[in-house]
């Protein structure tokens, strides 16, 4: 099975030192920048030992980091670069069946594009990671050069769970508990899908595939129903959306299957509501998930896996 979500635990910044140039190396040492570990994950989350999961024939490695949380564009971009080099050296070089995700610092679109262009020749990177919760909805035009770079290089765009740029992580403020942070992330995924769709990213870049990592999946049908209905009455605000939103979503959006927020007796119902089996990508775990042709879906999603 092609596992599309192996989460690599955040390395300490010290592990990135060898990949930072003189100024940034000394900066992080002298100013005590020791960590880019997120506050929105349970401590110790992610795999520490590079390797392929036992049930996988190929795996996409997604490093965990809170790169979006730093406010200096340049510092964040330097650390993102270090993280990408670390991933390549420690994970991708450890096993030829491993593929990776490029971490970009979304604080600067220009620097993010430069990093994508820099790494595009590395065929083992298959997608670009953006955080679920950032400064702006992902569909906003300021981010489009990043998506254009993805399409230019045959990379998917991945939206990974989490994210925190210092503003309230829900539209109604700061929840008290980590469990609420996680529970509200499905709503954040809903907003991001809506933004990418209604801003016209899928119209402008019809070949772009957007992969939602660890989203929970089952929130998607109700969003599509509501969007289809509202679009019929308010289409004029976004006239470039020329097909029903649910159709566009089925073409362009993919989701890793775990966690799958439904009991087993609802699997058939949810699949019918999604309206497509092609959207699901495999990620490993113990809980049951629907049975679809995951490997074919992965090959269709990631052009670099087809080469």
């Amino acid at each position: 099975m092609i596992d599309c979500d192996v989460r690599a635990a955040t390395p300490p910044v010290s592990a990135l030192h060898e990949y930072l140039d003189g100024y940034w190396h000394d900066t992080v040492v002298e100013r005590g920048v020791r960590s880019i570990e997120p506050s929105y994950e349970l401590p110790g989350t992610g795999a520490r030992v590079p390797g392929l999961p036992p049930d996988a024939s190929l795996a996409v490695v997604n490093p965990i980091s809170a790169i979006e949380a730093l406010h200096s564009e340049d510092l964040a971009a330097a650390l993102a670069r270090g993280l990408n080099e670390w991933l390549r050296a420690r994970w991708l070089d450890a096993d030829p069946r491993l593929r990776g995700s490029i971490t970009v610092a979304p604080q600067s679109t220009e620097l993010a594009v430069a990093e994508i262009d820099r790494l595009a020749g590395e065929g083992r990177f298959v997608q670009v990671l953006m955080p679920l919760r950032g400064q702006h909805p992902l569909g906003r035009r300021l981010y489009w050069p990043i998506y254009e770079a993805c399409v230019r290089h045959g990379l998917a765009l991945a939206v990974r769970a989490g994210g925190n740029i210092g503003s309230a992580i829900t539209p109604v403020g700061w929840p008290s508990h980590l469990v609420e942070d996680h529970a509200t992330q499905s709503q954040a995924f809903q907003s991001q899908v809506m933004s990418l769709l209604l801003e016209g990213v899928f119209h402008r870049l019809p070949r772009l595939k957007v992969v939602l990592i660890g989203s929970g999946v089952t929130w998607l049908p109700s969003l599509c129903w509501r969007l289809d209905k509202n679009w019929k009455g308010i289409r004029r605000e976004v006239p470039w959306v020329e097909r029903p939103p649910s159709e566009v979503v089925r073409s362009c959006v993919r989701l890793t299957v775990r966690p799958f927020d439904a009991p087993q007796d609802a699997f058939a119902e949810v699949l019918a509501q999604l309206g497509s089996e092609s959207m699901l990508l495999y990620s490993g775990g113990d809980e049951p998930v629907p049975e679809v042709d995951y490997d074919e879906n992965a090959r269709q999603t990631y052009s670099r896996l087809r080469d």
């Binding site: 950032g134 909805p137 569909g139 503003s167 509200t184």
Partner: peptide
């Protein structure tokens, strides 16, 4: 939204 201000009333 959880990630900034969207553009449209539809959103």
């Amino acid at each position: 939204s959880s990630s900034g201000w969207p553009s449209y009333y539809l959103e």
